[in-house]
């Protein structure tokens, strides 16, 4: 019975750590901003490699390729583009809405989902193509501080549990 109570208490403790770290790591939320970001694609990476924005920001992306045709697929945002070298415009589609591309000069979207999303090349461009990716981090990225809290909570809980265990 006592064991049971301890386990419940420790579980609550672990979750609490997650919540506390989540709240602490949240940072202060500035108002939504407009952001214009130019992304250069080359074999096999994007520049900038990491984009950090805040939730609610209005993002305008322009793409450029320095060598061959590359794709630009953002996880979770239903965006998939195609960009050719020496071409000022590029092509965009929303995979959930069909396979056809439309010609565009920029991609506009609102960063309305928090978290870490990779943008990846979606068009086979060479040997390392499957590893061509960058990171779009939409803050507050709760998952990170929450999971750190859970890790620390879990480690402490384990030690406490073993300490109170009967030999």
């Amino acid at each position: 019975m006592k064991r049971r109570k301890l386990l419940v208490a420790l579980s609550i403790f672990i979750i609490l750590q997650g919540v506390i770290f989540g709240l602490l790591g949240r940072g202060k939320a500035p108002g939504p901003k407009m952001r214009v970001i130019h992304i250069k694609a080359r074999k096999y990476s994007y520049d900038p490699p990491i984009i950090r924005v805040n939730r609610g920001d209005e993002i305008t992306l322009t793409l450029e390729s320095e060598d061959v045709t590359h794709g630009f697929y953002i996880e979770g945002y239903d965006i998939d583009a195609k960009v050719r070298p020496e071409t000022p415009h590029f092509w965009l589609r929303h995979p959930s809405k069909g396979d056809d591309y439309e010609t565009v000069e920029e991609i506009r979207f609102v960063a309305d989902k928090n978290g870490k999303f990779r943008y990846r090349c979606s068009i086979t461009c060479g040997t390392f193509h499957p590893f061509m990716q960058g990171e779009l981090v939409v803050e507050p990225n709760y998952a990170y501080p929450v999971s750190i809290g859970l890790v620390l909570g879990l480690a402490i809980a384990c030690v406490v549990y073993f300490k109170s265990k009967k030999d």
């Binding site: 990476s45 590893f131 990716q133």
Partner: peptide, 10 residues
């Protein structure tokens, strides 16, 4: 190296 975003390492 493989799953990160850094081109130089790749």
């Amino acid at each position: 190296n493989l799953l990160g975003p850094w081109g130089v390492l790749k």
